[in-house]
Amino acid sequence: MPSRTKATKAAGGDQALVYNQGTFRNSALVRQQTLSAYLFLLPALIFFCLFVVVPMVMCLVTSFFDYRMGKPMTFVGLAQYFKMFKDPIFLKALKNTFILVIVAVPAVTVFSLWVSSAIYKMHSFSRSFYRCVFYLPVVTGTVAVAVVWKWMFNKYTGILNYILSSLGIIQENISWLGDERTALACIILILFTTSIGQPIVLYIAALGNVDPSLIDAAEVDGANNFQVFWHIKWPQIMPTTLYILVITTINTFQCYALIQLLTSGGPNHATDTIMYYIYYQAFKLNDYGYGDAMGVVLAIIIALLSALQFKVTGSGSTD
Rank of each mutant, 00 (worst) to 15 (best):
I196M: 08
T8C: 05
K92Q: 12
I159V: 12
A10F: 08
A206H: 07
L113Q: 03
V57F: 11
P212S: 02
R25L: 13
L245T: 00
S3M: 14
L261Y: 06
A303K: 01
P239R: 11
V246W: 01
K150F: 05
Q260G: 08
K71C: 04
P106I: 03
I215A: 01
S36A: 13
T23N: 12
N96I: 15
L42F: 05
A44V: 05
Q171H: 14
V297S: 00
I46N: 04
S315V: 14
G22A: 12
V133E: 05
L100H: 04
H269K: 13
S124R: 14
S175E: 13
A307G: 03
V143M: 05
D272A: 11
G314N: 08
C255L: 15
I99H: 10
K233F: 02
T249N: 07
A270S: 14
A217F: 02
L41F: 15
R4M: 05
Y280L: 10
I170F: 09
I119K: 13
I215C: 01
K121G: 08
M238N: 09
F82A: 15
A303W: 02
S315H: 13
A282W: 04
W234Q: 03
I169W: 05
L308G: 13
S165R: 15
V220K: 03
F47S: 11
F85D: 12
I169P: 00
V103N: 01
M58C: 07
L50I: 14
F229E: 03
F64P: 00
L94R: 06
A257V: 09
T62L: 04
P137E: 06
F65D: 00
H123V: 14
D87V: 08
S63D: 01
G266N: 10
I244W: 01
S195G: 06
G289N: 02
A299M: 07
I170C: 06
G168K: 14
Q309Y: 04
V54G: 08
S27G: 07
T249V: 04
T182V: 07
V76G: 01
V145H: 02
V110E: 00
W176C: 09
P235M: 09
